[in-house]
């Protein structure tokens, strides 16, 4: 396989954990809540997913358990941020730290254990194409994540549910005045975000690198949060940012393997720097930023 084919094939899988978590965070932030606990929720999902899959040999069960874990942790966040109207930044950070701690605890007995990655699912016809064929030879979660991105884009922009979520995020006071249960809608969004973050973690630990190592999420939750903000809360740009990051991180690996004369730390940091830089350029148009910004993001609302 050529280097190009390797990158093409690997980008989608490398991007999936960030993309899945970022899509969840997109819904949360569109409803006006800033959840900074994504990293911890991913870590928790990764541990739960790994442990359950390891013992049951059923990856579906592992994903379901990871989603459930993400939901439970996100509900703890929701209690702080919605019911007690605590500062969302502080509550999110605290929950994130909690998630990472629980993750280490759960994963401890299985440190360095491995799993069998599930089989890939080539798309007949497309997967045999020259050069770009490997792009269409992925595991099922990659396909589902891309479909989910399209579905969420459609829901946010073309459905009543999406209108309601955006309305709550823009002006919770006005949404309440015309009779929407703001807190319940935000609760739903937070739980959805938690579920996706949990599954994103499970993908990283059971499919992408099916091996348990403590701290394996390694900042991908933070990249997800950054993708949402710099992607100006739009599904399409978030997908672009996630793919860019995925491609660059693979490029870094190749560079190391090829013996590029740069310290590995520098190579490893390239995808973070370049992704943030690219997205910052995209979002530097103040006018467009202002039109897309979620007006009530991070503000507590009671009532």
């Amino acid at each position: 396989m050529t280097i190009l084919a390797f990158i093409l094939a690997g980008t989608l899988a490398a991007a999936t954990p960030m993309l899945l978590a970022a899509l969840g965070e997109l819904i949360v932030e569109r409803s006006g809540v800033l959840n900074l606990g994504i990293e911890g929720m991913m870590a928790l999902g990764a541990a739960i997913g790994f442990v359950v899959t390891y013992h049951t040999h059923n990856p579906y069960l592992g994903f379901a358990a990871a989603a459930l874990g993400g939901i439970i942790l996100s509900l703890v966040f929701a209690i702080l941020a919605l019911a007690l109207t605590a500062n969302q930044v502080a509550a999110g950070l605290a929950i994130g730290v909690l998630g990472q701690g629980v993750s280490s605890l759960l994963g401890k007995p299985l440190e360095s254990q491995t799993l069998n990655a599930p089989d890939k699912l080539p798309i007949p016809g497309l997967a045999d194409l020259p050069l770009i064929g490997p792009v269409f030879d992925q595991d099922v979660v990659v396909y589902l994540t891309l479909i989910l991105a399209v579905v969420l884009w459609a829901v946010l922009n073309h459905s009543k549910l999406g209108l309601i979520i955006r309305a709550v995020g823009e002006s919770p006071g006005a949404a309440r005045a015309i009779g929407f249960p703001v807190v319940r809608i935000r609760l739903g969004a937070i739980a959805f975000g938690g579920a996706l973050a949990g599954m994103a973690g499970a993908y990283a630990s059971t499919i992408y690198t099916p091996l348990w190592a403590d701290g394996m999420i390694a900042g991908r939750g933070w990249i997800a949060v950054a993708l949402v903000v710099f992607g100006t809360w739009q599904a399409g740009r978030i997908v672009f940012g996630a793919l860019l990051f995925g491609a660059l991180s693979l490029g870094g690996l190749i560079g190391q393997a090829a013996g590029v004369a740069l310290p590995s730390q520098v190579l490893a940091s390239v995808p973070y720097v370049v992704t943030i830089f690219m997205l910052a350029v995209i979002s530097s148009n103040r006018r467009r930023m202002r039109l897309n910004t979620v007006a009530s993001l991070g503000q507590s609302f009671s009532g």
Partner: peptide, 14 residues
Amino acid sequence: SLFETLTVVQNMAL
């Protein structure tokens, strides 16, 4: 109680 980033008809559809 209107939402500025939505269109007139989207505001109604809520």
